[in-house]
């Protein structure tokens, strides 16, 4: 690095007292986030396990019940989330290149995609609420054959609901990153928090990549 002395100062002020240098801190926070993502995988894993077992116990019911979900909306939402992942990755890249303005554009785009996802989800939910396709004992719909169709909707709502909460959490993190970027808290050498937020956001996308075919495309 040519202007090492110059870039060193803004970097070191971000290093907490118990780390020896910025690289150690950066690697630590990434490692911490990966371990956190591991817990997230196992958290959702429990739901995937319940899904697999009930699908195998009631294949006909799952097939009948999944028709109540709107593939078109699910498909659009998948595209939206994938796009948000692309913009998130680009936001980090822009900050690596020291381009604050572009970073903010990309973060903002990510936020818009995330909001779009939630709006579409809201319409899906309210349609099902209207029809009585609700989880558990609140299930009042009568149009689906097979044993215990309410179980499908329980699994659907718990899975997408928890995923939705994670989207909201991610949005809050992205807003914080946006504010911090606008206040010049990051630079080409110190962009660690955005990077870690990105990791989390990609996992939210990753989970949806599995939820979409499992819930909407049962065949």
């Amino acid at each position: 690095m040519a202007d090492h002395a110059k870039t060193h100062a803004p970097l070191d002020e971000h290093v907490a007292h118990h780390f020896t240098d910025a690289e150690q801190q950066r690697e630590s926070s990434k490692l911490g986030m990966w371990v956190f993502l591991l817990t997230e995988v196992l958290f959702f894993g429990g739901l995937f396990c319940a899904y697999a077992i009930y699908r195998s116990w009631y294949p006909e019911m799952f097939h009948a019940a999944h028709k109540a979900l709107d593939v078109k909306l699910g498909f659009i939402n998948t595209l939206v989330l994938i796009s948000s992942s692309v913009t998130m990755a680009l936001a980090i890249r822009s900050m690596q290149l020291g381009n604050k303005r572009q970073t903010m554009y990309h973060l903002f785009a990510t936020l818009i995609f995330a909001a779009t996802f939630l709006v579409i989800k809201y319409f899906e939910y309210s349609h099902k609420f209207h029809l009585g396709q609700l989880p558990g004992k609140y299930y009042t719909y009568t149009g689906i054959e097979g044993s215990n169709p309410h179980v499908f909707f329980s699994i659907y709502f718990v899975m997408t609901g928890l995923h939705g909460l994670h989207v909201i959490g991610g949005m809050i993190a992205i807003i914080i990153m946006l504010v911090k970027t606008s206040r010049d808290r990051f630079n080409a050498l110190y962009y660690n928090p955005i990077e870690v937020t990105g990791l989390y956001w990609h996992l939210v996308d990753l989970i949806w990549i599995f939820l979409f075919p499992l819930l909407y495309l049962v065949s």
Binding site: A50, G136, S154
Partner: peptide
Amino acid sequence: TPVLAITLVLLLLERTMGIGIFDPAMG
């Protein structure tokens, strides 16, 4: 621990909404 977390969430929902994953009366 995350598996415990999801288990307890499901059990809480079972108690409040009868989601039918753990409660035999609900399938």
